[in-house]
Design a protein around this nucleic acid. Structure first.
Length: 271
DNA sequence: AATTATACCTGACAGC
DNA sequence: TGCTGTCAGGTATAAT
């Protein structure tokens, strides 16, 4: 469910409210992708110092370490002083003096992992290979082009890999490539400087726009405040197979790349 | 080293 | 009404 905008919207919805709270209890449901990595009771009494983000990971700083939270495909967070009774898909809950944070994740591809520091091998393994943040200054067109020149895989899959630039998931990859007029199957190393620059701009644009709109939601995205996003109202190609291109009316096509669906306009994205 | 396939899990939906 | 197969916003890990 969540790509970078959704994760960031989620973060902003509770970061300031939970900061300064003291952990009163931890409740676990079914196993998530990885074990928590700490005895839950060991977190009790610790203060929540901040909630940051790296790629699609949320980084919650506690007195004695960090919680890395990932929403996977179907995860969402809720934060409120009081929450309704936990359901069968609620698998992690942090009870703090400022409110309760709950991870709801039917598919359980998400994760909550505790590490003593961000230098810890576990954290480095998860975060160390991540590419640059697309909405920060480190993401510049020239370096982006240079990185693409080293990759022969299809550009769509290179974007999804997240080791050049993070946060671009399956929806925004298709959307950004459409805006840049680039066919998703194009080898990354065959993209010229100007076209890479255009793609760079498209990525920034589509992510910023989604962020401003509160995150996309093709199904059930809710921020931790329960607000629904509405990016789906103007998806140009994603999930629009067979429908007319909003720019040229040609039928949008879908293909499979690395077991994921890709959508594009065969005319607007000629190569 | 880069690329591709596999695995994790549940629910929704289409077709029979 | 089942049943089966397919698909779904991710990504670490194994295999090539």
């Amino acid at each position: 469910m969540p790509e970078l905008p959704e994760v960031e919207v989620t973060r902003r919805s509770f970061a300031d409210r939970i900061a300064g709270g003291t952990v009163r209890g931890v409740a676990l449901g079914k196993p998530l992708r990885w074990p928590l990595g700490v005895e839950p009771d060991a977190l009790v009494g610790q203060c929540v110092r901040s909630v940051g983000r790296r790629g699609k990971y949320l980084l919650m700083e506690l007195d004695g370490g960090w919680l890395l939270l990932h929403l996977g495909m179907s995860g969402s967070l809720q934060f409120a002083p009081v929450l309704p009774p936990a359901g069968p898909h609620d698998h992690f809950e942090l009870d703090t003096s400022r409110g309760r944070l709950r991870l709801h994740d039917p598919r359980r591809f998400g994760a909550v992992v505790h590490v003593p520091s961000l230098d810890h091998p576990r954290a480095v393994r998860l975060l160390g290979g991540l590419g640059v943040e697309p909405l920060e200054a480190g993401f510049d067109p020239v370096r982006f082009h240079q990185a693409l020149r080293l990759r022969r895989a299809p550009i769509k899959q290179v974007l999804l890999a997240g080791d050049i630039v993070v946060g671009v998931g399956n929806i925004y990859a298709s959307e950004a490539l459409f805006r840049a007029g680039i066919r998703p199957t194009t080898r990354a190393d065959r993209i010229s400087g100007p076209r890479a620059a255009r793609l760079h701009g498209a990525i920034v644009d589509v992510l910023q726009r989604a962020l401003a709109l509160g995150g996309s939601t093709l199904r059930d995205f809710l921020s931790a405040e329960g607000q629904s996003g509405y990016f789906q109202l103007d998806a140009m190609v994603y999930d629009r197979a067979g429908q007319p291109c909003r720019q040229c009316t040609t039928a949008i096509r879908t293909i499979r790349q690395g077991q994921r669906s890709t959508y594009f306009c065969p005319l607007c994205q000629a190569r």
